[in-house]
Simulated scan of single mutants.
Amino acid sequence: MTVLDWNVLSKMWADYSFQVGPIAHFVIGPNALSTTYVSATPSFTITKRGHGKHTLDQITYEMAPGTVVHGSADMRVHACNIGDETFECYRVLYTGYFPPGWQGKEAYKHYRLEIGECPHLYALLDQMCETAERGDIQSELQLKALFYQFLNEIRLASRKLQAGEHRDLIEETIAYIHLHIQETHSLFSLASRCGMSPKYFAELFYKVAGVSPIHYIIRHRIHLAEKLLLTTNASIREIGKSVGYSDPYQFSKIFKKYRGVSPSELKTAGRSN
């Protein structure tokens, strides 16, 4: 599954204007002929039922309920039904008005998204089809509003599904942090290890762990340090170094911030009990 930076996409959709349409609803029987054409504008193809193939230039995407394929303009499109049942899908075409030299170019990329089953999305697409057919100015404004609602629906559904599918990866990262707690970690290094952007990795990590990656590391370091202060005779410098703080002053400062007492005060209190 494609991992997209939804922050980049959301900014693109929020900052620039679009003309939406046409909106098409296809129902292709098991024995129907496939279609081939050159796309005029970027588009989203959303599968409602059945199984098909959607080829953009030389890249083929398999289509099933809960999948969305985004294609760019000037691409050779080949679509066909590959199942024994009726294949039904929607195509939402749009034209974006971007400034010269715009760097994101997300509208000019092709990718496949998994969004899971979204019955309410199909109802929204039916409403978009009906609105596009009317063709008056009021309907054009309504269609733009529905388009933004459509974009938000697929964003939320895709992110929810991605978060669930990446839970194992985040949990493996947590185990990695535990094993290498004495090493230096940054948001960038942890995200790179997972092949994600730092912002997207941080969002997924928070959904799984309930805290940011850096806060999690600090919290775990302080928890381990507290145990060592109370159960060993190691020096404060040695304990700080063992949990990733080579500077004893920094270790004491962070420990007191999170525990309310300094390492030496905790150690002394532990001895007296």
Results as ranks from 00 to 15, higher is better:
residue 51 H to W: 05
residue 27 V to K: 13
residue 46 I to C: 02
residue 36 T to C: 05
residue 44 F to Y: 15
residue 17 S to F: 06
residue 33 L to K: 14
residue 26 F to K: 15
residue 47 T to V: 10
residue 45 T to N: 08
residue 18 F to V: 08
residue 23 I to D: 00
residue 38 V to A: 12
residue 31 N to M: 13
residue 32 A to L: 01
residue 39 S to T: 14
residue 26 F to S: 15
residue 23 I to N: 02
residue 16 Y to M: 09
residue 50 G to V: 04
residue 24 A to S: 14
residue 45 T to H: 06
residue 39 S to A: 15
residue 27 V to E: 11
residue 51 H to G: 03
residue 28 I to L: 07
residue 45 T to C: 09
residue 32 A to D: 12
residue 48 K to Q: 12
residue 26 F to V: 15
residue 51 H to A: 10
residue 32 A to N: 06
residue 21 G to E: 05
residue 16 Y to A: 07
residue 34 S to G: 13
residue 22 P to V: 07
residue 38 V to I: 15
residue 24 A to T: 13
residue 39 S to R: 11
residue 42 P to N: 04
residue 50 G to C: 10
residue 30 P to R: 07
residue 47 T to Y: 02
residue 41 T to L: 08
residue 49 R to T: 11
residue 36 T to H: 05
residue 47 T to G: 06
residue 33 L to S: 12
residue 46 I to E: 00
residue 40 A to V: 12
residue 52 G to E: 02
residue 20 V to F: 11
residue 37 Y to P: 01
residue 52 G to V: 01
residue 24 A to E: 14
residue 39 S to W: 06
residue 37 Y to E: 08
residue 50 G to F: 03
residue 52 G to S: 06
residue 37 Y to H: 08
residue 31 N to I: 09
residue 31 N to Y: 11
residue 19 Q to G: 13
residue 44 F to T: 00
residue 34 S to A: 09
residue 31 N to T: 14
residue 19 Q to Y: 09
residue 35 T to A: 10
residue 50 G to E: 04
residue 15 D to I: 07
residue 37 Y to N: 05
residue 15 D to G: 05
residue 25 H to G: 05
residue 24 A to F: 13
residue 30 P to C: 12
residue 43 S to G: 02
residue 40 A to G: 14
residue 44 F to Q: 00
residue 23 I to V: 15
residue 40 A to Y: 09
residue 16 Y to N: 13
residue 40 A to D: 15
residue 45 T to Y: 05
residue 26 F to G: 13
residue 36 T to F: 01
residue 40 A to L: 11
residue 32 A to F: 05
residue 30 P to D: 11
residue 26 F to M: 14
residue 24 A to I: 12
residue 27 V to A: 09
residue 34 S to Q: 05
residue 43 S to N: 03
residue 16 Y to G: 07
residue 18 F to Q: 05
residue 42 P to G: 02
residue 50 G to N: 03
residue 30 P to V: 11
residue 28 I to R: 03
residue 51 H to C: 08
residue 26 F to Q: 15
residue 42 P to V: 03
residue 31 N to E: 14
residue 50 G to K: 04
residue 33 L to V: 07
residue 22 P to K: 08
residue 23 I to T: 04
residue 43 S to D: 03
residue 39 S to Q: 08
residue 45 T to I: 08
residue 28 I to V: 15
residue 21 G to I: 05
residue 34 S to I: 00
residue 38 V to T: 15
residue 45 T to W: 04
residue 38 V to H: 11
residue 22 P to C: 11
residue 34 S to N: 04
residue 26 F to R: 15
residue 44 F to S: 00
residue 17 S to H: 09
residue 48 K to V: 04
residue 35 T to F: 10
residue 24 A to D: 12
residue 44 F to P: 00
residue 51 H to I: 07
residue 25 H to T: 07
residue 50 G to Q: 04
residue 52 G to A: 04
